[in-house]
Design a binder for these strands. Structure first.
Lengths: 115, 115
DNA sequence: TTTATATATGAATAATTATTCATGTGTTCA
DNA sequence: TGAACACATGAATAATTATTCATATATAAA
């Protein structure tokens, strides 16, 4: 990391004051990870759809008009993050939201958008 | 786009029911774009820092320990999205939040994380 | 009016992430 | 038991995005 800033250009007081107020670095990682999940059209659609009704992989493919593999990969990601859960019924796997938690965030996004 | 799903695997009723409830495609794009902005550690830190105090580019470099160019590029992005604004004072450019709007979303992210 | 400095920016590169392709697993049904 | 199907998954590829590098612009100060 190169030093790009001579000391005199900085409002040291302000920087120090803000620095004490910053959160732990890992917090920003964690939070940006949450937002990253929602920062993808496909995943947003999946979550939104599942908030309406439990659906199987095939339903989602049909609804979003996407390849099964692409959907499955995204579902795995969402599963790992405990945003969705699944239950097996024979060879069909039904997905639903893990809980309603994430929908609050999405709704906030809709709100933010609608202004 | 290849058809991956034979019709019989689909719960057609469910899919149709959900389909009528889906939002316009562009809405998902818009919303995911908002979340995408917040899905980056650097930008989150910048926004968080600016929510505490107006800071110049150099301050931000120092605070985040990052190259000026990287910071400037991100600031341009945030400016274009009207999330931050700037004012010039001589050769120094001070950035601040455009409004508090975006902080609501970030706070929701913090909340979501803290559970 | 030359020199230094703060910032901006286009282009190149690096890093990350979504999607596809090929194939595997498990279940149903003939 | 084997053929068809729903889904999962590793690896390859495509697409996107962050960062760096080189350099430009604008202002201030000498």
């Amino acid at each position: 990391m190169k030093s790009v800033c001579s000391v005199k250009c900085i409002n040291e007081n302000n920087v120090n004051s803000v620095r004490t107020k910053m959160l732990k670095d890992s917090v920003y990682s964690d939070i940006s990870d949450i937002f990253k999940v929602l920062g993808d059209k496909t995943r947003l659609k999946i979550l939104f759809a599942l908030s309406k009704k439990e659906l199987c992989v095939c339903d989602l493919c049909s609804l979003l008009n996407m390849e099964q593999s692409a959907i499955s990969h995204q579902l795995r990601l969402l599963r790992n993050l405990k945003l969705v859960k699944c239950r097996k019924d024979g060879k069909i796997v039904y997905y639903s939201l893990y809980d309603n938690h994430i929908m609050n965030l999405i709704k906030m996004g809709v709100l933010h958008n609608g202004e």
